[in-house]
Design a protein around this nucleic acid. Structure first.
Lengths: 120, 120
DNA sequence: TCGATGCGTTGATATTCGTCGATACAATGA
DNA sequence: TCATTGTATCGACGAATATCAACGCATCGA
């Protein structure tokens, strides 16, 4: 996590989350796979971040700007931005700057890959 | 988390994880639901705990004792016990004392309920 | 009864995390 | 050019976390 390079709102996609998530219950999980998987679930381990994803998914056009998250979530703008950065680094959301605003959307595919790790 | 009552290895099942997990992407997540869900994912947010679940699922008879986890995971017995407690409080594993050993197993149903929260 | 073994807990320590306030950066419009 | 607005980052703080060593308790075998 210390070597993660961050270069603004559009820098969140320069990550390489494991191409696909190894199944948790299939074979014994290798330490590296476990670490990658834990990074994904860690992004989901905060109530504010879960509500961010929920609000994003529920928004019209599947997009929402930071300013519209501050009110519903009851956190400061800096805190919301911080959580969006974490979600972005996990590959769960993407930000698209249009004018003054940055529109965020959920990466459902990444979410489904995480889900598949819990398959039986 | 502060009010969680713990009474030994067999006390891990006296929890009440939300009966069923609300879908993350379905409707806007209520703060309480988000908190409950985050508790579950938090238990999955550590590589050691993920490997514990993996080893448990892969073990013969689906059971394993703490002593057999210490070696593969490279952590002290106290640390393993700590992680098992967290997994137990999240309802993801159950411990059964038989003689000197406590045999742990995965609660696959609980895992599937967590997975269903990531449905689209 | 006593030593050995497995396990949970406690105390200590270093690290990480969530949050805020303040500030810096970016884009727009006057 | 300058003020305004939206967003990202920084510094700081308290709380939570992962880890180990040490200890206490329970169980089993001699």
């Amino acid at each position: 996590m210390a070597t993660v390079r961050v270069a603004g709102a559009r820098g969140v996609e320069d990550q390489q989350p494991a191409e696909c998530c190894p199944s948790l219950l299939g074979a014994p999980l290798a330490p590296d796979d476990a670490y990658e998987l834990a990074r994904g679930f860690h992004a989901l381990s905060d109530p504010v971040r879960l509500r961010v994803l929920s609000l994003l998914a529920d928004a019209a056009d599947g997009e929402i700007c930071v300013c519209d998250l501050v009110g519903p979530l009851g956190r400061t703008q800096g805190t919301i931005s911080h959580h969006l950065k974490i979600l972005g680094e996990a590959g769960l959301v993407h930000g698209d700057r249009r004018g003054k605003w940055v529109w965020y959307s959920v990466d459902r595919e990444r979410l489904l890959r995480l889900r598949s790790a819990l398959d039986t």
